[in-house]
């Protein structure tokens, strides 16, 4: 693979340089701009690290709506946020890549995907590819950072965790299982400073050909029955959905009840 872009020598200087890439979120019900949930968890993760110096970076448009959302991150207790100004419709990856290669953070944290726009979740991968840094997705926590190696906990489904080690500098994304972001306080949010940074804008041409509309409800998959006779097909189509009241065991001994529960637990394979 590609050689690493830079040697991990910064830890010698003490503080761990962490950059958190933050985006403008969108509330799922009202569509209002807000802190993006996963990005905010990323900020929280960064704040939980020992001796870290955190920079918040956003690339995008600065208008009233986005400023409110960005101030949401500042309200978590930051004095400033670096805003790489980009026109609407710009591809922010070149801008962010140049900002990051300039700032040379040890660890870049971001959410898995944006809450608006394409929301493809590609950004950390493309940045990692461009910068030649390793990339780890779906973190629940960063356990420690020592000698340029970070020990991470990756979130697996159902509360399970996997421990990984990665050589810094690296890009990591945060899973919904990471601890929730702290409250954004109005005072620091109001006082926080937006440090504007310039970067050349590259427009995202491809997306012009797309049509975007509000998400349609996906059709529920029907159970297709391959049956020889029309009668069977009709029966399958007209069959009532399963369920409608469960099984109730009354007047049973505790042992019988336990037996029934045990059977169900076995079926669901939750007993180890």
């Amino acid at each position: 693979m590609q050689p690493e872009a830079q040697a991990p020598d910064a830890q010698a200087r003490g503080a761990l340089e962490v950059a958190v890439l933050v985006s403008i979120g969108r509330h799922p019900l009202t569509g209002r701009a807000r802190r993006a949930d996963q990005d905010a968890r990323g900020v929280e993760l960064a704040m939980s690290l020992d001796k870290s110096r955190i920079t918040l970076v956003h690339a995008g448009v600065l208008d009233e709506e986005s400023e409110g959302a960005l101030r949401g991150y500042l309200g978590m207790g930051f004095q400033a946020l670096t805003l790489v100004e980009q026109p609407p419709g710009a591809d922010v990856i070149p801008a962010l890549a140049s900002a990051l290669s300039e700032a040379k953070p040890q660890l870049v944290i971001t959410g898995e995907r944006a809450e608006q726009g394409e929301g493809s979740g590609l950004l950390p991968y493309l940045l990692a590819e461009r910068l030649g840094w390793p990339m780890v997705s779906g973190l629940a926590n960063v356990e420690k950072v020592e000698n340029g190696v970070a020990t991470l906990l990756q979130a697996l489904p159902r509360g399970q965790r996997r421990r990984l080690q990665v050589r810094l500098p690296a890009i990591v994304t945060v899973d919904g299982a990471a601890s929730a972001a702290r409250q954004s306080a109005y005072g620091p949010a109001r006082r926080g400073e937006m440090r504007l940074a310039e970067a050349p804008a590259v427009f995202d041409e491809a997306s012009n050909d797309w049509t975007v509309q509000a998400a349609r409800k996906r059709p529920k998959r029907l159970k297709i029955v391959k049956a020889a006779s029309a009668r069977d097909r009709f029966k399958a189509a007209a069959a009532k959905a399963e369920g409608g009241g469960g099984q109730v065991l009354s007047d049973v001994t505790p042992e019988q009840g336990a037996e029934a529960i045990y059977k169900l637990l076995k079926e669901e394979a939750v007993l180890r």
């Binding site: 469960g246 109730v248 001994t253 505790p254 042992e255 336990a258």
Partner: peptide
């Protein structure tokens, strides 16, 4: 809760739990 449940056992919870624990331990 019984109406919602897929499986409901009417009985003393402590006894049922104890029986379940015995069963699991035994298995």
């Amino acid at each position: 809760m019984i109406k919602r449940a897929d499986l409901a056992v009417i009985g003393d919870s402590a006894k049922v739990l104890a029986a379940l624990v015995d069963l699991v331990a035994q298995q």
